[in-house]
Nucleic acid binder design. Structure first.
Length: 363
DNA sequence: AAAACGGGGAT
DNA sequence: ATCCCAGTTTT
């Protein structure tokens, strides 16, 4: 039997905000997106920060804003240039949606970032969290947020032992977020909540001794600060083997653009496909067939250059990287776009991290 | 409700 | 190795 959890009273909320705010005024980090406060830069930072740690984002954010200081610059850019700046950040759909949204804002909103929550939510790549974050931080509009940090902070404050990702958990925690958000300076409170979660109310090792709201925390009271929130069940990982083929034709190599909908959509890649055969002869045939199916190019397989490991959702991939020589090109159409590039040109095109490693072998 | 979508930081 | 990260979208 689980005890029902009541949301805090007004007095509790006032005390909580005051302690949190004072702590933040003393301890706020000097992050790159706190230099400018316009909606555009806040928006860029929030998209980059989705499922990505602050330290990782800092450099990307600065390079991105140097390349595209305004929404018009971004809207006018080529998608490949946007992806090139996103290279290594992962979740590349974010970059494509960001670019799409920028074009939409310039075309339909005069390049102005909207102030209405519904208009913001309609932009691609912006969900409830991101909309609330941008409006509160950029415009000081009182909107709640719930993400990894606030989820943990609220779960602990409330002593919520259920699954915070369940529908009941989400409902409770969003209600908490709504209760906490003040009418003014909501951006400060939201950033303070996230900063507290990152620096003090940490996932592995909560630093309750340094916490400005420790006396208000139910989890600490019960000694459960490192057991709440409940860890997620881990998904099963499948082992697979793939080949990537470096096809040479005089001084060029063959690249193929990855289609929409799948992994690494919009990025360029060496021809890559699953490898199943055990015997060398069958393996060789798989290489020829795979490259032909993907690119319409016929090859003569060569040596194994290198074997790389990488993980993606649900899969641990052993990637065998082969050399190959160009033989002929089918007149047959392939569904995908291909390019023959000089090695030096590779740096202009967006690749995934593994593709970039392979590219570095060639140089 | 669950899966897909990346890659790197921290322990 | 494992867990985690300023989530969103699709299935």
């Amino acid at each position: 039997m689980e005890k029902s959890l009541a949301l805090p009273q007004i007095a509790w909320l006032r005390l909580f905000r005051r302690r949190l705010g004072s702590w933040f005024d003393l301890h706020a980090k000097d992050l790159p997106w706190r230099k400018r406060k316009d909606a555009y830069s806040v928006w860029i930072s929030e998209i980059m920060l989705q499922q990505t740690q602050v330290a990782t984002v800092c450099g990307y954010f600065e390079r991105f804003l140097r390349a595209f200081p305004t929404v018009d610059n971004l809207a006018q850019a080529e998608e490949e240039q946007v992806l090139r700046l996103w290279e290594g950040l992962g979740y590349y759909r974010r970059a494509r949606q960001l670019h799409k949204a920028a074009k939409f804002l310039v075309a339909e909103h005069g390049g102005e970032f909207p102030r209405e929550i519904d208009a913001v939510r309609r932009l691609p790549g912006i969900g409830r969290y991101t909309a609330g974050a941008i409006l509160s931080i950029a415009y000081d509009i009182p909107q709640p947020i719930l993400e990894a940090n606030t989820l943990r902070v609220y779960s602990r404050l409330l002593g919520y032992e259920g699954d915070p990702h369940s529908s009941a958990g989400q409902k409770l925690l969003w209600s908490m977020a709504e209760a906490v958000i003040p009418k003014t300076r909501s951006g400060r409170v939201n950033q303070a909540l996230m900063e507290l979660g990152r620096e003090v109310c940490k996932a592995r090792n909560a630093l309750c001794d340094n916490c400005p709201v420790a006396p208000l925390c139910k989890a600490l009271e019960k000694g459960l600060q490192n057991r709440i929130p409940r860890p997620k069940a881990k998904p099963k990982i499948e082992e697979v083997c793939e080949a990537a083929v470096v096809v040479r034709r005089r001084s060029r190599v063959l690249l193929v653009k990855r289609g929409d909908g799948g992994r690494w959509a919009g990025l360029w890649d060496f021809p890559r496909f699953p490898l199943n055969a055990e015997h060398p002869a069958a393996r060789r045939k798989e290489l020829i067939d795979g490259v032909r199916r993907l690119t319409g190019v016929t090859i003569a397989p060569g040596e194994l250059l290198q074997t790389l490991q990488h993980s993606v959702t649900r899969f641990r991939i052993t990637l065998e990287c082969y050399a190959a020589e160009y033989v002929s090109e089918d007149g047959r159409k392939t569904s995908s776009e291909i390019k023959w590039l000089r090695p030096a040109e590779l740096e202009k095109y967006p690749l995934n991290t593994t593709g970039r490693k392979i590219a570095s072998i060639i140089l």
